[in-house]
Design a binder for these strands. Sequence first.
DNA 1: GACGACTGGTACAATGAGTGAACCAGTTGT
DNA 2: ACAACTGGTTCACTCATTGTACCAGTCGTC
Lengths: 245, 245
Amino acid sequence: MDRDSLANKLVRTILAEIAAGGQAAGSQLPSERALTEEFKVSRGTVRQALGVLEELGVIERRQGSGAFVKNFPGRAIPSRYLPPKITNITLDDILSVRKAIELTAIELACDRISAANLKTLTTIVARMETETDDLPAFLKDDMAFHETVIRSSDNCPLVTAFEAVREYHRYAHVFTSRRVGDERAAVEQHRRILLALRRRDAKAAVEALRRHLESLASGKSGKKGVLSLCAMESDSVQHRLVTTG
Amino acid sequence: MDRDSLANKLVRTILAEIAAGGQAAGSQLPSERALTEEFKVSRGTVRQALGVLEELGVIERRQGSGAFVKNFPGRAIPSRYLPPKITNITLDDILSVRKAIELTAIELACDRISAANLKTLTTIVARMETETDDLPAFLKDDMAFHETVIRSSDNCPLVTAFEAVREYHRYAHVFTSRRVGDERAAVEQHRRILLALRRRDAKAAVEALRRHLESLASGKSGKKGVLSLCAMESDSVQHRLVTTG
DNA sequence: GACGACTGGTACAATGAGTGAACCAGTTGT
DNA sequence: ACAACTGGTTCACTCATTGTACCAGTCGTC
């Protein structure tokens, strides 16, 4: 029966958002009062979480201005603020689970997906096309696409399993090598998945999704990632922004 | 940022234990002071949880004697004490997820399983043979077997996904039809899985595990289950003990 | 420059969950 | 009768969280 403080949960959530690229280095976080609204916690709790993030060197707070994401964290990040045992996982581990869960889900979804969800996916893919230069927005829609597919399987335990690995999923972007044009290729892959779903062609849908997931594998693109998460000690992890080279 | 009380968590845990058959109807729960030890919470919290269970008619408390599992709960059980949306799930849903996760896991496990874990599995299977008449003990070992296989995949996100659906997994026993001899068949299936793992024969291991999981499917055994969980209202679920017949 | 509207920084009182210890009251077996 | 268990009750304490209020910088606009 472990009890985890609300502030710690908030720290983890915000950290995941930053690691996933949802908050670029240098960008401004929402105001404390806005975060109060967003997460339905008191300002005291928000401030406690931001205090931890500042202590870790992940953000910088300026009175009167706001809180900003720093380029380099000043200290290693304790593992309690990261998904469990993240130091020991590889991109292939994450992709194994995503394949296991998502391929099962999409097969079910071909039978069960509603017209409304097909429309939602269509909207998401259309929006992604216009966002190939806006990484945070693109990642949000990518996540939304996959979540919608999972939900369309109409299988609650499957959704639960996916939600449990969502945080790993978020960090997967950190591991994923990224280069110009990746987003365009991803849009095309999502479009193919959507087409197969619309035709309710389970075989094609599974195959299209498998290709999409395998294109994320470490071996494919040789370039260094722009963002990497490096295990520094057994107990902690350092989060580092690295220039592409 | 939802905050769930320790007492509610305890209620869910104990309820899942009972639903899984770990605590038969009429049996005595551990004493409040023992539960305090087991779950590392204060006695006040334990008492609060037991109070809820008594209120729901799941247990009966007798001063000086102890707390006992009742045959029929007096009231419908609010959904917050059951896995999310359990009213909408089917046995096939659960088996889909278990197949997705466990078949992926065992394939990895064939490469990565340690000698220690092979030994653990051997011990578990040996113990299961002697427990075919002791359902609670049998179910505990069944769970332990599958958990050990998952952990042997050495893939943290996979373990996380499994743990997330563990509660569904527990309730799966509720849905599963059960008749004399089922346990013996299950032991044999576990033994085959273990043999394939020992030979590190991924294909055979996957196939053996698939057969085991599919033997749990609803269609196979036509008999009524001894325990069934019935959706009564949109918001609540009634937990009922039914005699085999 | 002055103002208003934002930002973070601080303080304080109230609430409620959870703890830990003490003691009471029944039951059970020796 | 007694010891050793069981659940039932009370109380004081800690601490996370809330809600409110107000202070202090910053920024854009009249």
